[in-house]
Structures are given as structure tokens and as C-alpha cells.
Write a protein that binds this DNA or RNA. Structure first.
Lengths: 192, 192
DNA sequence: ATCGAATGAGACATCAATGTCTCATTGAAT
DNA sequence: ATTCAATGAGACATTGATGTCTCATTCGAT
């Protein structure tokens, strides 16, 4: 008698479905449960077996995004080296999650008073801490608050993801475009 | 016999309802037609008399936003003076429309192939032209494409609007935060 | 004060998506 | 080959929003 973790057959990989759902909903935020299921190559019934409902699916996506983002922040080692270089690394590591992140951000500003807020708050704090560190080290300007820089970071990451999807920006330029604008701004440096 | 423009009584001002709807939907993009009506102080029936349906309402909001944005761009006189100063003026003039703009942008990335696209394209072109002019005048860097700068502009305007609504940024700092980040970036200028 | 048009409230049908259920089929383990 | 759990397809009820309609009421014009 074989005993897998739960059942005997684990033909459909919950993680795979999750990732597929992330891709689908990132492109079309209002995609139907049916569309999500088809895109993942499973039936509606199975999708509902894996996730109690749309609500639960989005919660799971949040959980995944938060976890991946946390891991990305770990890899980046935000507290090592000059803050501007850390920001460069951050943008690079965040890129794969950017579309999903963008979806969840616009999704969450509806939920307003939601749960799982702790996770987002922690991520915000970690990123804001990077900007604060940069300010304390004299690398970043002090007239732009860490909270605003954090918010702007999300905005640019989202805009960048959309620009790449729309084909207005080449994928290979993603990291450069965002970090250069965020760090140096649009103005030519000479006359500053 | 008195003859107003259309009927005799124009008790409810279509424009007023439109503005109210803009405010309501900017805060909660999924607000019901009923919620929109209540918020505007009119009945559902009246709302449906003014706008054929939700679709038509959003089209009208688009039209209004495009018109207001066009007027804002006219006031700013994008082609006068240094490009960076023009951008400053632009951000200031765009602020009142920012929340609505943010709503419509996220709304439109669902419609994908929609009509009324001409209007948005024209606005994009006008704003991108500002950045191109700045590059040609040597005021803006040339390694960031006008298309990306335009996209980033939308992103920051939206992020700024949300940050103000959430109370993370003071309303009076809106213009400063956006223009400073967009023009100068987060890095301190000395060591550039 | 009277008239008439526009409004607001609500009833109603419609529609789309959701969530639940059943059941035949598949495919892996034995 | 047999077994059995999981899957996929589809039927079904439910829900929520939309759009249409009616009708009593209100408010401005006369």
C-alpha cells in the first residue's frame, strides 16, 4: 500500500495551477474561474477542489506572492552594500513577480480592510527600510520620504511590467529603465 | 413659454453626476450603479436616464477625463520653456484628474481593443512629445525612451494619488514628490 | 393654484459568474 | 486485468448586478 502525502494520485499540481492562475489574472484581472481553469489545463471542478472559491484563490495568490517576494528580498540582501546598488538588485529580483504584484495591488485597494495585511505591511517595511538606510548613509535624498519612495517603487514596477507586456519597452531593458529612473531621474545629471 | 436647452427642468446636472461618479469609482472601482447613484444623490432610474448603462457611464468618464486632460495640457503649454519646468507644471495641473485617470487606466487594460483609443493615443503622444523635446534640448537623458518616461509618468501620478488617499503622503507634497522623483531620482545629486 | 415634466422608489426580468452536485472516464498502482 | 481515487464535463441552483418598467410624488413654470 503506497501512501502519498494526501491522496494516491496527485495528477494536478496545485502549485502549477496557482502559477498559471497568476499569469492569467495578471493579464486579465476579471478572468472567469472557468477561464482560469481552462488556462491551467484543468476543469472548473478541479479548480474548485484546489481552492474553495475565487476568494480563496486570490488569497492563495497573495500568499504565494508574499512568500516569493520575501524570498526575493532575502536573496537581494537589502542591508548589504550601498543602498542604490541594493535597489538595483531588488528591481532585478522582483521582475518575475511584477505582473502578479501589480494585479494584487490593484485588487487589494478594493478589499480595503482585509486580512493577510500583515504580510504586505512586512514587505512594505522591509522595502521602506532600504530607503531609510540609504538616506542615513547619505546615498538617498532626505526630502523624499521612505513611504513615498516605497509607493513609487511599486508604481514603477507595475508600470514597467505593463509597458513590457504592451511591447512599449523591451523586456531586457526592464531593470535598467526602472532603476535608472528611480535612482537618477529623467534630468541629465550635468546641470543639476 | 420658456425653453431651456433640452427639456424644461434640468434639475439634475449631468456634469455633476459625472463628477460624483468619477469620485466614487476612483475610490472603489467596483462600485455598483446603485452606489454611484446614491453617492451622486440621485436615483438609479435617473442615472440610467443620463447614461444608457455602466458601459456608457465609463465611456462618458473617459470622454470627460480626456477632455480635462487635454485642457490641462493646453494650460501647461508643454512646448514652452525648459522641459523640466514644463513637467513640473504638468504634474501640478494633472493632480485633480489623477484619481480618475488611475481608475480609467486600470479599467482600460481590460477592454484592450476598445474604441475611444484615439483620445488616449493623442494624450500619450502629447506627453511623450514633451519628453522628446526635453531630450532634444539636452535637458532629459536620452537613454530613457519617451515611451517609458510617459508610462512612468502615469504610474507615478497614480501611485501619488493613492498615497495621498491612503494618507501616506500629504496632499500638499503631491506635486513635489512626483516631480522631484521623476526629474532628479532618489539618489543624492552630489555623487552622481 | 394648476399643470406637466422629471424624479425617486421599487418591482421585475435578465444575465453572468459562482459554487455545488452527479457521473462517466481516465490513469496509476497493484 | 482489476481497482479505485481523482479528474473533466456538464447540469443545476444561487447570487448579485444590470437594465427596463410603472407609478406616485415633487418641483418649477406659468
Amino acid at each position: 500500500m503506497s501512501h502519498s502525502m494526501y491522496g494516491c494520485l496527485m495528477a494536478v499540481d496545485r502549485t502549477h495551477v496557482l502559477r498559471s492562475a497568476a499569469a492569467t489574472l495578471s493579464v486579465k484581472a476579471t478572468a472567469t474561474m472557468d477561464e482560469v481553469a481552462r488556462a491551467a489545463g484543468v476543469g472548473r471542478a478541479t479548480l474548485h477542489r484546489l481552492f474553495a472559491g475565487r476568494e480563496a484563490l486570490i488569497r492563495a495568490l497573495e500568499e504565494m506572492a508574499i512568500a516569493e517576494l520575501d524570498r526575493a528580498l532575502d536573496r537581494v540582501r537589502l542591508d548589504e552594500g550601498p543602498a542604490d546598488e541594493a535597489l538595483r538588485r531588488l528591481v532585478g529580483q522582483v521582475e518575475p513577480v511584477a505582473p502578479l504584484l501589480s494585479f494584487l495591488v490593484t485588487e487589494n485597494q478594493l478589499f480595503e480592510g482585509d486580512a493577510q495585511n500583515e504580510g504586505w505591511a512586512r514587505l512594505d517595511a522591509r522595502i521602506a527600510a532600504l530607503f531609510r538606510r540609504g538616506q542615513e548613509q547619505g546615498v538617498f535624498r532626505i526630502d523624499l520620504t521612505p513611504a513615498w519612495l516605497c509607493e513609487a517603487f511599486y508604481g514603477l514596477v507595475g508600470s514597467g511590467a505593463w509597458a513590457v507586456m504592451d511591447g512599449r519597452v523591451a523586456a531586457k531593458d526592464y531593470q535598467y529603465m526602472i532603476t535608472e529612473l528611480m535612482l537618477g531621474g529623467a534630468r541629465r545629471s550635468v546641470e543639476k
